[in-house]
């Protein structure tokens, strides 16, 4: 992937990510998140991981965020009012995030694998769909099926809980 494109999409993704938090209009936030997902999937595509990139768009941008937007529109959420910051919270928050950055830097400095670049992929056209499928259904078949059943149980549970009794 061309470094120009990499930096472009990274910058866009971060900018949209920041705008998710800063926007006061919930619809604008949701759309920024969608744009951020799209940039992320562009990064995946740049790594020749077409399958993950497309699934990112299909599942997150195409289905989950549409539902989010649907709910936001149905609830008719208004833009949030600007709040006054509590000085104590502000100082505490800055301290916590500074601590996190310091911890991250320390971990990165002792993580030697992060310094060297990945070996180049040999194949020109990676058949990642087939490889993901084979890996999922052979090496991780049992965990995969278990996760499927768990999600099914969760879905049934949600439906049972949210169903109102007819009077």
């Amino acid at each position: 992937m061309s470094p120009i494109l990499f930096w472009l999409f990274t910058a866009l993704m971060l900018a949209f990510g920041v705008s998710v938090i800063l926007n006061r209009n919930p619809v604008a936030s949701a759309l920024s998140l969608v744009a951020s997902f799209l940039c992320l999937s562009a990064l995946f595509v740049g790594l020749d991981a077409f399958f993950i990139g497309v699934i990112q768009v299909l599942v997150y941008a195409g289905a989950v965020m549409v539902l989010f937007l649907f709910i936001i529109m149905l609830l008719d959420l208004r833009a949030e009012h600007r709040r006054h910051f509590n000085r104590l919270v502000l100082v505490g928050g800055s301290l916590v995030s500074a601590g996190f950055v310091i911890a991250l830097l320390q971990v990165l400095s002792v993580f030697p694998a992060g310094a060297k670049p990945f070996p180049a992929l040999g194949v020109a056209r990676l058949d990642d769909v087939r490889q993901v499928g084979i890996t999922l259904f052979t090496r991780f078949n049992l965990p995969f099926q278990t996760v499927g059943v768990l999600i099914l149980v969760a879905a049934v549970g949600v439906i049972v809980l949210s169903r109102r009794e007819l009077k």
């Binding site: 077409f50 399958f51 497309v54 699934i55 768009v57 299909l58 941008a61 195409g62 289905a63 549409v66 056209r125 990676l126 058949d127 990642d128 769909v129």
Partner: peptide, 14 residues
């Protein structure tokens, strides 16, 4: 691309 049809569905859902 090797995920052609998935791409179509993804973009259509956008």
């Amino acid at each position: 691309v090797n995920v052609g049809i998935l791409y179509v569905f993804a973009i259509a859902s956008i």
